[in-house]
Simulated scan of single mutants.
Amino acid sequence: MSQMNDKIKNMKRKMILDEALIMFEECGYEELKISDLAKKIGISVGTIYSYFKSKEELYSACVLSEMEKAYEAHKILFAQDISNEDKIKSAIKIKLDIISRKRTSLTSGILNNPFFFESHQILHKDMLYKIYEFYIKPIDELKKIDIDSYQLVYILNSLSNAYLIRWAEDDLESLEGKDEEVFCAFMSILKGCK
């Protein structure tokens, strides 16, 4: 009976998360009301709060859900028999593509919290480290500088985040082609820019 209850709880949690992902993207973080989410799903507000203590916790769970999708995409990518450069370039594209599909839900978070990326990196560090692990071997094989490879992954992440912040602030109309710019900047660091 306990396994059945756990399955039901997991299904409800997933249903809440799936609909929250859609609604955060439709109206943004600030405008989403938990009561509207509950009504859309057909459950009580109390049920949502039994799974997520606050709207912020629900949003954070949505961010983690997207990170889990990124992890799965990275797992497939880094298993391919392609060059280290292509793995890194494609991984950058995966990140920018996933985030570009979430403009409304992310923009308010980025603009209202100057430490948006850093706070989610801390909250979801276990998942992030799992993603970062994919980068270590290719970076080790490509780098011409004496900097720890984990530090280099953080540098790569910061480069792509800089583009995302500019995009959220409407300084960039689109992220299309920006993966190439991030990649070139990162490769110049790896190769020991002068």
Rank of each mutant, 00 (worst) to 15 (best):
E85R: 14
D86T: 02
I98L: 15
N10F: 06
F183N: 01
Q80Y: 05
K39W: 05
L128F: 14
E169Y: 08
M11Y: 11
F52S: 08
F117N: 07
K69S: 13
I110F: 07
E133A: 07
L152S: 04
K178N: 07
V45C: 04
F117D: 08
S65C: 04
I41S: 01
I82A: 02
I147R: 07
E180Q: 15
D140H: 09
I16V: 15
S2I: 11
K95W: 02
G192R: 06
M1V: 11
M1K: 08
R13Q: 10
I147K: 06
E85V: 12
N113R: 10
E180I: 15
R166C: 06
L190C: 05
R166M: 13
E26R: 15
F115M: 09
S105I: 08
K39P: 00
D146G: 05
D171L: 10
D148G: 00
F183V: 04
K194D: 14
G177N: 07
E176G: 05
S105Y: 10
P138A: 13
A61C: 01
F24L: 08
K12V: 15
G109F: 06
L64S: 11
K7H: 13
I189P: 02
I16F: 03
I16M: 11
E133Q: 12
Y129M: 11
V63W: 02
S50H: 11
L21N: 13
V63A: 09
A73D: 05
G177T: 13
L156T: 02
Y150R: 10
S65M: 08
N10R: 12
W167C: 03
S174G: 00
D170W: 04
D18M: 07
D146H: 14
A185D: 09
I22T: 09
S65I: 01
W167M: 11
Q121M: 12
Y29E: 02
E133K: 12
A168D: 10
T104H: 02
L164C: 02
F134Y: 14
S108D: 12
I34S: 08
I136L: 15
M4D: 13
D126Q: 15
M4S: 10
E26K: 11
S160K: 13
I16H: 01
D126N: 14
Q151A: 12
H124K: 04
L17A: 02
L111E: 09
I139P: 01
Y51C: 10
F24C: 09
F134N: 02
K53H: 11
F116Q: 08
L96P: 02
G109P: 04
S160N: 07
S119H: 06
L172R: 00
K53N: 08
K14L: 10
Q151W: 05
A185H: 15
K33L: 11
I48C: 00
P138W: 07
F186Q: 01
I147L: 05
M67L: 15
E30P: 04
I122M: 10
A79M: 05
I88K: 03
Q121T: 04
C62T: 13
I8Y: 09
I43C: 12
F115D: 05
I82C: 09
I145K: 13
D6H: 09
K95D: 12
I41K: 00
E57K: 12
E66W: 06
V153I: 14
K7E: 12
Y49Q: 03
A185I: 14
M11H: 11
K87G: 06
I122E: 11
F116H: 13
I165V: 15
I94G: 02
K12F: 04
L190W: 09
S65F: 03
